[in-house]
Amino acid sequence: MTTQIHLTVDGKKHTIAVDDPNMPLLYALRDELGMDNPHFGCGLAQCGAFTVHVDGQAIRSCVTPLAAVKDAKITTLAGLGTAEHPHPLQAAYVEEQVPQCGYCINGWIMTAAALLKSNPHPSDQQIRDGLSGLKCRCGTHMAIIRAVKRAAAMA
């Protein structure tokens, strides 16, 4: 028995049929819509690699049931900006050469984008507090902080 779900992702409307309406959003994005992000990191909302925006708020798509987001506007990293029209954070990330393996990238950029929206000029401590809980195994934290500051300065 499948359920029809309507989703708006990065400005495009989609209808998908799922076996389980409690399926986390992550699998709809990757599996049903064929998107390459967000990444599966832990599936436990502990790392952030699967962060997307739902109505502008950063949420962890690996534990968010589809049924809870069906009418919401979802933005992924791919929808945040493009190489031609990058979000300031994406431009800053390139400038600072932040990612190493980069698998964590959705968490940091999407969370920082939401942070900068509510607080366009955060202090060093506000950046750290705002991004607390996200994981980066390569240890790129210093570059992440530089990039967020650079993006804030661009805005």
């Binding site: 998107m35 390459d36 992000n37 990444h39 599966f40 992924t76 990293l77 791919a78 900006g81 493009t82 190489a83 990058p86 994406q90 990330y93 390139v94 050469q97 932040v98 990612p99 980069g102 698998y103 990238i105 959705n106 950029i109």
Partner: peptide, 13 residues
């Protein structure tokens, strides 16, 4: 870096 920042399919996943 650019591919990673703009969510291009660069990973084995």
């Amino acid at each position: 870096v650019v591919a990673k920042v703009f969510a291009k399919p660069v990973y084995v996943t």
